[in-house]
């Protein structure tokens, strides 16, 4: 039996424009506050919250709430599982697009 096409291995949780962007930001910065991620991804608070909740439920993103300069801050970071899932997603994506320079491989 043939091996299934790599696209079937793409993680559906990550394979959404906003969630992929959030994962890419957090893979690059290690930790960032909600406002920073929102500025980079350019989405509304509510849409970002919705997608971050999905990633959090999947165990990919850690959410820490705290206070900085007397204002509430929400810090986001990738969990180990999330980092591994993102790396696997990028590897799979690179296999699909076949030999093109790998996004995220520069790190």
């Amino acid at each position: 039996m043939n091996e299934p096409h790599p696209r079937r291995k793409l993680d559906e949780v990550i394979h959404s424009p906003v969630r992929l962007s959030v994962m890419a930001v957090l893979a690059t910065t290690s930790e960032a506050d909600f406002r920073y991620v929102k500025d980079i991804v350019e989405v509304s608070d509510s849409l970002l919250s919705k997608h971050v909740a999905v990633l959090n439920t999947a165990g990919y993103v850690r959410i820490v709430k705290g206070v900085s300069d007397n204002r509430p801050v929400t810090w986001l970071s990738l969990t180990e599982t999330g980092a591994e899932a993102y790396r696997e997603y990028v590897r799979t994506l690179n296999r699909i697009i076949g030999g093109k320079e790998a996004p995220g491989d520069a790190r």
Binding site: R7, H15, S16, P17, L20, S21, A24, V25, T28, I40, V41, V90, L93, N94, I96, I97, K100, P103, G104, A106
Partner: peptide
């Protein structure tokens, strides 16, 4: 999201 768009989105974010 198609695959090329996903790859370009990652590059764009980075």
């Amino acid at each position: 999201l198609d695959h090329d768009a996903a790859a370009s989105r990652i590059t764009q974010v980075e």
